[in-house]
């Protein structure tokens, strides 16, 4: 349990003062980032803030709810999905992140299609030989 407390500390250290002030308002809107604002304080050792930022790691922190992210892109996407009323920069960052995400997804789809085809023909072959 002390481990969890330590991780909660680490997370809150990563949060700057302004974001902590905005914490309360953000927890209302929490949705896909609901885990971020999960209000339940652990009845049985459940971490109050379910984050664990390794010491020395750079955290990109959401300015509204304080959720730490390992990549800027994750934070930008989170802002657009969970928090309403983005300012101009945030909106632009969100849209850029979405484009980048879409490109990566396309690449992943091609790879996964290739793997499906390989699985299919691999098993076709195996059944022909062994079945």
């Amino acid at each position: 349990m002390s481990r969890d407390d330590a991780s909660a500390d680490a997370a809150s250290r990563a949060v700057d003062a302004t974001s902590r002030a905005a914490d309360a308002t953000a927890s209302e809107t929490g949705d896909s980032g609901a885990a971020a604002s999960a209000p339940a304080t652990g009845a049985r050792g459940r971490p109050a803030a379910p984050y664990d930022v390794p010491p020395g790691a750079t955290a990109f922190t959401c300015s509204r709810c304080g959720r730490p992210f390992a990549r800027e892109r994750h934070r930008d996407l989170h802002l657009g999905q969970v928090h309403a009323e983005l300012d101009g920069d945030e909106r632009a960052a969100y849209e850029a992140a979405r484009d980048e995400e879409a490109d990566d997804l396309r690449r992943f789809r091609i790879v996964s299609l290739g793997m499906l085809v390989a699985l299919y023909f691999g098993f076709l072959f195996l059944y022909a030989v062994a079945g």
Partner: peptide, 17 residues
């Protein structure tokens, strides 16, 4: 998932969800 998804969600939270 901490490594593969590059996230700061705590291991316990990932296991829980």
């Amino acid at each position: 998932a901490r490594r593969t998804a590059d996230t700061f969600l705590a291991p316990g939270e990932l296991a829980r969800r």
